[in-house]
Amino acid sequence: MPMRRLPVRSLAALTVLGTLTLTGCGTQTADPGGRTVTSAGAGKTITAQKVMQVTKVHEESGMTLLEGPVFDENGKLLVVDVTAPAGKPKVLRLDVRKKTSQSVHTDSRGAYTSAQFSPYDGRIYLSDFVHGEIVSLAPDGGDPRTFFTGEVDGARMNPDDIAFDQEGNLYISDSRGLTEGTEIGRVVRIDREGRKATVLADKLAATNGISFDVDYRGLWISELTQNRVSYLLLGKNGETVASRHTAIRVDGGIAQTDSIAVDAAGNLYQALHGRAAMIVYNKHGERLATVEVPRGTTGLESATNVAITPGGTRAYMTVSGPAGGYLYAFDALARGIRQSNGG
């Protein structure tokens, strides 16, 4: 079937497709920087430039959806293809200079929506949205292990994005309720050994993006079905939430709030599902910029996530639609840190 715009994030279709199709540091490129145009009242517009096509629409699933960009220690960019069928590359490593890609990992069932390197053991961690699991790989893509599976407080997760604290504990956006349209999403903390899972926040509207702020004091989370970004101030040792409030209401029109990244200046890069664009806010909720693909570009429907070159300002945005899965580049407003590298 052709890839299409869904009423909620394409991941909603995966809960059905999962049983039908899914079973059975950084470098600087030579690509030109984005052209910036001032736009009164809404910050500036940054036009991202195409770097490369990464994937085509899969016949088996009828779509492709790139996510979870993260730089490895060699400056190569890893991405996941959420809807890749069994046997096709589900994790890919991109050389943004040479504009080449290679398969890192595939399996028979995973629907991976994010990728992150743990500061604790250096392994790649993937969230399997459909099966409610966290899987880890060796840096080269081998040695797959199930890090966490099962229920958390009586309910299996739909893990979307991952954020690590400085000690390697995982903070996960659990997008429960996405397909039903109910506000039963959660933020779940799993200790770095995978032994203890705790619900930090609940009654959220399809929790999607998640990222620590610059000082690791709190979490920015996006709620897809309410188009809002909330801020969770963490308590002692990050094991509780001291306070929680709606921080930003995103005027996305038909687009919805997807993943979040944070740069060294504390700016938030809010990806949009349903529009090939991102909105950049400062920590006070002021809209600084909109990042979008060039006008006239067709067949691209969602900008899901971004990775900013660690220590640099070159940013790489994953964009997908009926035309396939693409990587676009632009100049970020500040340098990249761990909070803007994966999730």
Rank of each mutant, 00 (worst) to 15 (best):
G209V: 09
I172F: 10
P139I: 14
V80E: 02
L204V: 11
L233D: 14
A84V: 09
V16S: 13
A12C: 12
L137K: 04
Q28G: 03
G218Q: 11
K76E: 14
Q339L: 13
R35T: 14
V280E: 06
P119C: 09
V104D: 05
Y281F: 13
A40Y: 11
V293P: 02
G311P: 02
L232K: 08
V96L: 13
V280N: 02
L6Q: 09
L20F: 12
G296I: 13
Y281P: 03
N227M: 07
N74W: 03
Q270T: 05
W220S: 06
A255W: 03
A276R: 01
V262G: 02
D121W: 06
P310T: 03
Q116V: 13
D165H: 05
T207H: 02
E73C: 09
P159C: 10
T149E: 15
A13K: 07
T47W: 01
D95G: 11
T29I: 07
V91R: 00
A277Q: 11
L224D: 01
A329K: 04
S173M: 06
A13P: 00
K203E: 14
S222D: 08
D160F: 06
S118E: 03
F164E: 11
L327H: 07
L78N: 12
Q116W: 04
N158L: 13
S320L: 10
S222T: 15
G142I: 06
L233S: 15
G218I: 10
I210Y: 01
V16E: 15
P119M: 08
A155S: 08
Y269A: 05
G336W: 00
A315P: 02
P69F: 04
P2T: 05
G168Q: 07
E286W: 03
S127V: 06
D140F: 08
R109S: 15
E73H: 09
K283P: 04
I184W: 00
A332F: 00
S320G: 11
Y231V: 07
L224Q: 06
I248W: 01
A201I: 05
C25A: 15
D72E: 13
R249V: 12
T45Y: 02
T304R: 04
E67R: 08
Q53W: 08
E67W: 01
L219A: 08
G274H: 06
